[in-house]
Design a binder for these strands. Structure first.
Lengths: 126, 126
DNA sequence: TAAACTGTATCACTCGTATAATACACTTTC
DNA sequence: GAAAGTGTATTATACGAGTGATACAGTTTA
């Protein structure tokens, strides 16, 4: 059963996108793998304190993207192939890096300064 | 007059927040400084292809945060003190870094790998 | 002074996100 | 087989973001 213990709600982006992102980052890290059981819509909605429909929206989109498999009546499971794992990992890495680098460039920060800042902030929790 | 040539619209966050972010990053870099003239609400809305009310919302929040000064009938101007510039810069740097680092940690990327990734992505445009 | 531009305010509308309350068919489990 | 749990679907409501249109008072500028 996939754990949502590490899940932190963000206030600025839609909840269903945050759920999708959490699953994708888990897949990228290998924490979540093929065949793993998802918590049911009702259970996860209670756990996160959100509406079941919101969780359903996230699961429906994961299904659309071919990352989970659902059968009416049974629990949903992760369904993913090894090459897709790498692809997702690359996508997420690029997205996170480009977002940060864009902000740095707009603030006039050099590559060397940015590299030094990573080390400084890396230690600080989470 | 402050230029919005470098402004790129993002589809995922509210437009008024993107405008505020653009101004703040300009202040942090020194590109935008005390006394600089803002484009009028109508002019900027036409330039960005958005509604004047959306620009007004951004300007009203910048006024609330004490970053611009508006007089009814005249153009709005940046109103900011040197110590605030540093404060904004530190805030934005920390926010961008922590966001990226959090994603890396969730994907099981080490500090060394992340540092190496910066160099690889830094060259690729914008 | 008059025209053009500015900040400010209001009203009505659409759309996406999220909530709330059900309902039904299917699977698992006892 | 019955109960509990599950995926799926429907309807209604609320709110923020964004659009569109309009109005009015203050400032600039020709």
């Amino acid at each position: 059963m996939i754990s949502f213990e590490q899940f932190l709600m963000d206030d600025h982006s839609p909840i269903y996108l945050q759920i999708i992102g959490y699953i994708k980052r888990g897949i990228a890290s290998g924490t979540i793998g093929d065949g793993d059981e998802m918590p049911s819509r009702r259970v996860l909605s209670a756990l996160l304190g959100v509406n079941p429909n919101t969780v359903q929206k996230a699961y429906a989109m994961l299904e659309e993207q071919g990352l989970i498999h659902s059968r009416s009546g049974a629990k949903s499971c992760i369904a993913i192939r090894p090459e897709t794992v790498e692809q997702i990992r690359d996508e997420l890495l690029e997205e996170a890096m480009k977002h940060m680098i864009s902000a740095m460039k707009q603030m006039g920060v050099s590559c060397e300064e940015a590299t030094e800042l990573i080390g400084r902030y890396w230690e600080q929790e989470v």
